[in-house]
C-alpha cells in the first residue's frame, strides 16, 4: 500500500493527482460526444488552435486562461459554423482553422523566442507544476461540465444522434452545438497545462472508445467513459511517480493499455461496436431528394 501512499506525502503530487484524475474524468465525459459525432480529430485540432492563443497571451503577458480560452472558443465556433453549413467537411474545417492557428503560434515563437518556455509547457503539459489555482480551475470546469451534461442530457443526446429530427422536435440544435463546443474548448483549456497540446486528444478519445466497446447504451457509455478517464489519470499519475516517466505520457499509455486489454477481451463484439465510431451520423443535407 505504501506505493500508493508514498507519493501522497508531497503536496505537488497531491495537486497533480487531483488535477490528472479530474482532467481524465472531464475529457472522458466530453469525449463521448466528440467521438460519437465523428469529431475525434477536433480535440487534437482545438488543442493546437488554442496553442496559438496561448502563444499570443504569453507574448503580451495576458492571462493564459482568458487569452487562450477566447482564442479556443473563436476557433471552436468557427469550426462548428463551417461544419454545420456544410461548406466543407468537418475534418477539413478543423484542419484549416486549427493548423492556421497553430502555425500562428509557431510564427510567434520564431519572432519572439522569449515566450518559448511557457509555450513549451502548453505543448507538453506539466502535471508536476500544478498550482492550487489550477486545481480549482479544473475542479470548477469538471463540475460545470457535469452540470451542463446533466441538465441538457436529453437535448445533447438527441442532437448528437439525429440533429435533423432533433431540430424538428423543438431542440435548438445550433445552441446545443455551440454549448458542446464551449464545453470542449473550456475543457481543453483547463486540462492543457496538465496534459499538454500533444497528449490531450488521446484522453478525449481513448476512454469513450473503451467504454463503447463495453456497452451499447448511451447512458452507460457516458458514465463508463468518465470513470475510465478518471482511472487513467489516477493510475497514470501513480505510475509516473514510480517509473519516473512523464505523467502526461504515462496517463495516455495507461489508457492505451486499457484499450488493448478491452479490445482483446471483448472480441469481435467489442470491436464491432467501436468500429461504428468511424461512421458518425453525418447525413448529407441533400440525401434523397
Amino acid at each position: 500500500m505504501s506505493w500508493l501512499t508514498e507519493p501522497l506525502q508531497f503536496a505537488f503530487f497531491r495537486h497533480g493527482l487531483m488535477v490528472a484524475t479530474m482532467a481524465g474524468a472531464l475529457c472522458g465525459l466530453i469525449g463521448v460526444y466528440v467521438t460519437l459525432r465523428g469529431m475525434s480529430y477536433i480535440g487534437h485540432g482545438l488543442s493546437h488552435a488554442i496553442f496559438g492563443g496561448a502563444a499570443a497571451s504569453a507574448l503580451i503577458s495576458f492571462n493564459f486562461y482568458i487569452g487562450a480560452g477566447l482564442w479556443g472558443m473563436a476557433s471552436a465556433l468557427a469550426i462548428g459554423r463551417v461544419t454545420r453549413r456544410r461548406l466543407i467537411g468537418s475534418d477539413a474545417a478543423i484542419g484549416v482553422i486549427t493548423t492556421a492557428s497553430f502555425a500562428f503560434g509557431i510564427a510567434l515563437l520564431g519572432l519572439y523566442g522569449q515566450v518559448r518556455k511557457s509555450v513549451d509547457a502548453a505543448i507538453f503539459g506539466s502535471v508536476l507544476g500544478v498550482t492550487v489555482a489550477d486545481v480549482w480551475v479544473v475542479a470548477g470546469v469538471t463540475l460545470a461540465a457535469g452540470v451542463v451534461v446533466f441538465a441538457f442530457y436529453r437535448k445533447l443526446l438527441f442532437t448528437t444522434f439525429d440533429p435533423e429530427v432533433a431540430g424538428v422536435s423543438g431542440v435548438n440544435t445550433e445552441r446545443m452545438d455551440a454549448l458542446l463546443m464551449l464545453l470542449l474548448s473550456v475543457s481543453i483549456l483547463a486540462t492543457m497545462k496538465v496534459l499538454g497540446v500533444v497528449l490531450i486528444a488521446a484522453i478525449l478519445v481513448i476512454p469513450p472508445v473503451v467504454a463503447r466497446m463495453l456497452t451499447n447504451s448511451f447512458a452507460r457509455m457516458l458514465w463508463l467513459s468518465t470513470l475510465i478517464g478518471a482511472a487513467c489519470g489516477f493510475v497514470g499519475m501513480i505510475l509516473s511517480y514510480h517509473l519516473d516517466v512523464s505523467s502526461g505520457a504515462t496517463i495516455v499509455l495507461v489508457g492505451a493499455a486499457l484499450f488493448a486489454v478491452v479490445f482483446a477481451l471483448t472480441g469481435p463484439r467489442g470491436r464491432g461496436r467501436a468500429a461504428g465510431l468511424d461512421h458518425p451520423h453525418d447525413a448529407p443535407a441533400v440525401a434523397g431528394r
Binding site: N216, S217, G276, H279
Partner: peptide, 9 residues
C-alpha cells in the same frame, strides 16, 4: 440516414 452504430437502446 440513421447511425446504426450509435450506442443507443
Amino acid at each position: 440516414t440513421v447511425n446504426w452504430s450509435f450506442p443507443v437502446t
